[in-house]
Design a protein around this nucleic acid. Structure first.
Lengths: 326, 326
DNA sequence: TAACCATTATTGCGAAACGCAATGAAGCAC
DNA sequence: GTGCTTCATTGCGTTTCGCAATAATGGTTA
């Protein structure tokens, strides 16, 4: 053993504390052995070690049994306190009871999720965990750092190239749909590729899929007639519902908006890469009961059967990502 | 290992507490290893053990180093308290400062010692340990039990057949002298065996040596003219100083009384077994600093050069009595 | 005083645990 | 993809452990 700071040497091990307590209580090495589940010779050796470490005989043999010395009497109180502290440490459990807990969860998500996911989360939480508050934060380049630091508890959406130290769980896949005015003059039950090129369009310049749509258009050398670009989804339903403009969106947000605003949902004629909406959290919180509960809720609400399971981010080679190290 | 009460299992050893603290502080297994004086692989193994015992990863590797989990943050306070308690236990020293201590010492002794020993003890203690109170108790058959229980701290005198578990230290030897009136009509500078038989005597029916004197008289078939028997020493000087009675006493008490009351000290013509005055204490208190101080004082005051050393009571065979077991 | 009993202390040994050099794996920068 | 730092794992010599067997101790009894 390398050199130790002397003030750090010779702290009593729990078994010696237990011995001290048992011997003080019983006055017998034999009885203490029984109490501690060891043999009598073993306990005699432990006593020798305890005597050496405390530099005192501690207990003296007599007709009445092993009697404590003044030093044993002086130390027993502190020894028992130390034992109690160690027991407390062993017994401390992390628990999270949604019915009674009071705390705030910060969930990073896109604007679209405010419409597609947040209402269901909120409804669930208000019913099952009245003391819980939800805060939505913008998903973006800062999201991984926020997850690691604990500023954010969860991220919902699609994050490419997430670095190590995070877990992710697939919720549901996304392909693409077109929205049109229910009373559109030319587009009835389906939209052809020719229609798609001819009609005027409204685009959303934000959100996860925006870049995927742009990539697909470029790749297929299609130039759309973009009559309107919006920074978010706020005015979109009103625009599509009162004009003949076409909107191309991920299915989930598209079907949701169509449902609420009486719009028509059409299969998108353009081949656009799909993606999977996932939930992400940092490995620090993997075992945290509160974190486990929250992502359990989201899993229950949004996960489809065919995407069950979870993944650890980052490169992995031979071995599967571990629940935790060692 | 035999079956243990499950609630007693898995208390953290001090080295794991130290690791927890060091890792929380440094955020690095390598730095924690340096701090704890172990190699990095060793500390990594300890961390694995800590993780298993607390059922949590505790620290997650990141670019910023090893970051604590919520469970680590929840437990670190209690872990540090436990460490502090163990350090306090290790650092607790028994000390006794005569200049400041306030307590009572009970010393068992004979009546004679009230005259021969107690004044010197009292004078010393009042000067060197003003907060100390001395209580004299009667030495007798109950003395060993009182020493063991702590009711008495020390015994001064001669105890035959003291059982195991006690220490003893010789102070001074005792032989016998005769006291006579300084103006005695017939006894001048010496008393012959003939004088001894002819003269009238005063006897003390108590004290350590009384039985030894009786044994010697019986053994030598001498019948003394006992004009007076006293239960104690209280009236003895007045009797011897105003009559022609002879008193036969152990030398120390004899010379002390002669000095105070102007009596004549004569070598005793009768062969009486001598004995050694000792101090006795129980093994429970052997290392107690307060007990050590008190018997150091008595040793300093009363011990003569030729009787230095100490003995453990009770039968011993092959090995010398141990300072303490093991 | 010797024998006996219960309890504590010690010895010798097979088994278990430990610490670390060497090396693999992980995370990140270039 | 390479290189660097740090954490995790492996294999092995060394140390420590628990206990059966037994010695020693303290006290009682005949």
């Amino acid at each position: 053993m390398k050199h130790l700071d002397l003030s750090e040497a010779n702290l009593l091990e729990p078994r010696l504390l237990r011995l001290f307590d048992a011997l003080f209580t019983t006055g017998s090495v034999t009885k203490a052995a029984e109490k501690l589940g060891q043999s009598q010779p073993t306990i005699s050796i432990w006593l020798a070690r305890l005597r050496k470490e405390l530099d005192d005989p501690l207990f003296i043999r007599s007709a009445e049994g092993m009697l404590p010395t003044p030093r044993a009497e002086a130390l027993i109180g502190t020894a028992r306190q130390a034992l109690e502290m160690l027991r407390r440490l062993a017994e401390l459990r992390s628990e999270f009871d949604p019915a009674t807990a009071k705390r705030r969860f910060v969930i990073c998500m896109t604007d679209a999720s405010h419409i597609t996911l947040l209402p269901a989360i909120l409804a669930y939480v208000r019913r099952a965990a009245p003391g819980i508050r939800i805060e939505a934060a913008q998903i973006g380049g800062d999201t991984p750092r926020m997850l690691q630091s604990g500023e954010a508890d969860l991220a919902l959406g699609y994050i490419s190239d997430l670095d190590a130290g995070h877990f992710q769980q697939a919720l549901f896949p996304q392909d693409w749909v077109c929205l049109a005015n229910a009373g559109h003059a030319r587009i009835r039950d389906r939209i052809t590729a020719k229609d798609f090129r001819r009609e005027a369009h409204v685009l959303i310049r934000s959100g996860t899929g925006h870049q995927l749509l742009a990539d697909a258009l470029k790749e297929q050398q299609i130039v759309l007639d973009v009559a309107l670009e919006l920074p978010g989804f706020l005015g979109l339903p009103a625009i599509v519902g009162t004009t003949d403009l076409i909107a191309t969106l991920p299915r989930h947000i598209g079907e949701t908006l169509a449902h609420y605003y009486g719009l028509r949902v059409l299969d998108c004629p353009l081949a656009i890469a799909g993606f999977t909406v996932k939930q992400y959290w940092h490995a620090r919180f993997h075992h945290d009961p509160a974190s486990q509960w929250l992502r359990g809720v989201c899993g229950e609400l949004f996960q489809q059967q065919e995407v069950r399971g979870l993944h650890r981010s980052g490169r992995t080679k031979k071995r599967r990502p571990r629940d935790f190290p060692s």
